[in-house]
Amino acid sequence: MTNILLQNLINGALTGCIYALIALGLSLIFGVMNVVNFAHGDFVMLSMYLTFWIGLWAGADAVFTPLLTFPALFLIGLLAYYALIDRTLRQRYVTQIAVTVGLMTFLRALAQLIWKAQPRALPYSLIQGSIQIGPYTILASRLVSAAVSVLAILGVYLFLSQTWAGRAIRAASDDLDAASLLGVPYRQTYALAFGLGSALTAIAGGLLMTFQQVDPTMGVRFGLLSWCVLAMAGLGSIPGLLISGIIVGAAEAIGMSLWDPRARSLIVYLLFILVLWLRPRGLFGRK
């Protein structure tokens, strides 16, 4: 019995690394411009569908698709920023988030319309097989996904600390006025953060497609997951995001095996609300 539990725990923890990556994208955007992209989960869905199509037509493995989907989502993010967010910066806060709610509804409804509820999955992957550690089986795809996610998170960490653009983003999230005085152009920084944050979903989407299927309701699920991870982690700590992602992934898996597999969103939500009740700044938050 405990073996199954532990097995699920391991799987959940590995998947949690991908959740952390998704949440990182959200955190970049939220940290810089205080706007949460409600459509972020649906960007993941979009990435997964793009991965599916590229995988199907070009015969490429899901792991390589981010080469195409990353720039694609980056551009989509930029477009979304300039078309929607940029113009509402001076409006009431309700209006600012309403715009992203509109985007979310738009994407979700469009996806339902075009792709119906039928799930799609890629038929194969280069990454086959699994590893045995004692009584536990770990699918290679999950392991690789987790590893790539952690690498991507590390990459973003380095980007933020070593490059000018990255430091501009950090400056803008700390203190916008001071940053602009130092020459940081706020609009471009915002756009960059939005583009980069959205592009990260491309990596996550590609990884997810190595062991998951996609349908139009994915946006709801990954939206909730990323908000939960973000709430738990708080703003300002990237290692915190990774840890939170793993916790959420593990909790989801445990809940599903102990309680009911259909209750996965319920467990995540309870966790979400609990964190917001007890520590609204998050466990690792610095702001």
Binding site: F30, N34, Y93, A231
Partner: peptide, 28 residues
């Protein structure tokens, strides 16, 4: 918890969106 002074407004929006979905699954 979310209307406390100083908690960012967006959390309420997110939580309320999630509440619907969760209730749906719960009652299902």
């Amino acid at each position: 918890p979310l209307f406390r002074f100083g908690v960012k407004e967006v959390w309420y929006a997110l939580s309320s969106a999630a509440l619907v979905e969760v209730l749906r699954v719960t009652f299902l």
